[in-house]
């Protein structure tokens, strides 16, 4: 498979940005300075980035409560995201959404979503817009193995098939819905579920950027060509708890350590591209350095940014009321 050098560099940078963003939040959240709660995407970076590397700003995605990675992968600005998570007026949602509601319509990012299973119906609608307006775009619904059981998701698989919509259903399967394992909560298989709707199904190893990029590329090409919806099942490992502060007592000792040791998407990426002579270590190091600076300055800026004004409380409930 040929992947353009720019795509490789951009994708590595996106994965590194997600990783550093989330690791920094892990640290900063513990200080108590971040309001509310956050759900981290560490360990799953290659999934969001590998899928979104096949998309343009004209394509639309919906995300989940674990949405920071999808935002960064879709090109949402890091400084605005960080300020949002700090609840500042410079945030991408002016401090009114927070971690679970980051959205940037100009990037085709229709929002992280605090409701499990909230996104798939919305992506049926975005796909309908793309199809009706004939703008060449497609829609991608990211959702977890937990959300794969929601009625909204199953209804959406049906509706998208009935209407032959250009939508890719990406199941990010990290094996846990909150604290309950998918071996308990998910009946049957994702593959059989897709088959039940007559929908094509692809799967891949989510720690391998190249596998995700290639498989997602096939899925997206299928949808873009007007062949209707398709399911992409990405197998993943979640490095942190469901939310920050979750001690993950439901996971066996060593499970996460093994994931970090053997399935770190960034390590695997670096190994592969340097061994294949596609990129140099020095280039990747330079990206690491730049991302460190970017995250650092985004945190500094977010902490210094002004709080929302009292008048913001009443603003933007309606376009006009």
């Amino acid at each position: 498979m040929q992947i353009a050098r720019e795509t490789l560099l951009r994708s590595y940078r996106a994965m590194r940005t997600i990783r550093d963003f989330e690791e920094r939040l892990h640290v900063e959240f513990a200080t108590g300075e971040i309001p509310g709660f956050v759900h981290l995407y560490c360990g799953e970076e290659a999934s969001g980035v590998g899928v979104c590397a096949n998309l343009t700003d004209n394509d639309t995605i919906s995300s989940t409560h674990r949405g920071h990675g999808h935002c960064i992968a879709k090109g949402v600005e890091v400084s605005g995201m960080m300020a949002e998570i700090y609840g500042k007026s410079t945030g991408v949602c002016r401090g009114k959404g927070g971690s679970m509601h980051i959205a940037d319509f100009s990037r085709g990012m229709l929002g992280a979503n605090g409701i499990v299973g909230g996104g798939p119906p919305l992506m049926c609608g975005a796909a309908l817009s793309h199809k009706t307006l004939k703008d060449g775009g497609i829609a991608v619904a990211f959702y977890g193995d937990g959300a794969s059981n929601e009625g909204t998701t199953l209804e959406s698989l049906n509706l998208a098939t009935v209407w032959k919509l250009p939508v890719v259903f990406v199941v990010e399967d990290n094996g846990y819905g909150e604290a309950t394992g998918s071996s308990f909560a998910v009946a049957g298989t994702q593959k059989d579920r897709a088959a039940g709707f007559g929908m094509p199904y692809l799967e891949c190893d989510g720690s391998d950027f190249f596998a995700v990029y290639q498989t997602a590329g096939e899925a997206i090409a299928h949808a873009r060509a007007g062949n209707g919806p398709i399911m992409l099942h990405v197998h993943l490992q979640r490095w942190y708890g469901h939310f920050e502060g979750d001690a993950m007592t439901y996971r066996a000792a060593g499970e996460v350590a093994e994931a970090k040791r053997d399935h770190d998407c960034l390590d695997l990426f670096r190994k592969k591209v340097t061994e294949a002579g596609l990129l140099e270590h020095a280039e990747l190091d330079a990206i690491d350095e730049a991302v460190r600076d970017e995250i650092e300055s985004s945190v500094v800026a977010a902490k210094a940014a002004p709080l929302p004004e009292p008048a913001d409380l009443l603003a933007d409930v309606y376009v006009r009321y």
């Binding site: 639309t60 919906s62 319509f105 229709l110 909230g118 798939p120 119906p121 919305l122 992506m123 049926c124 609608g125 975005a126 796909a127 309908l128 817009s129 793309h130 009706t132 307006l133 829609a139 009625g151 909204t152 209804e155 959406s156 049906n158 509706l159 009935v162």
Partner: peptide, 19 residues
């Protein structure tokens, strides 16, 4: 289909993206 959650959600998603 008789699936209110998906098509009302789809209507919302379509409204947010240009229809």
């Amino acid at each position: 289909p008789i699936t209110e959650a998906s098509y009302i959600g789809a209507a919302a998603g379509a409204a947010a993206t240009g229809l």
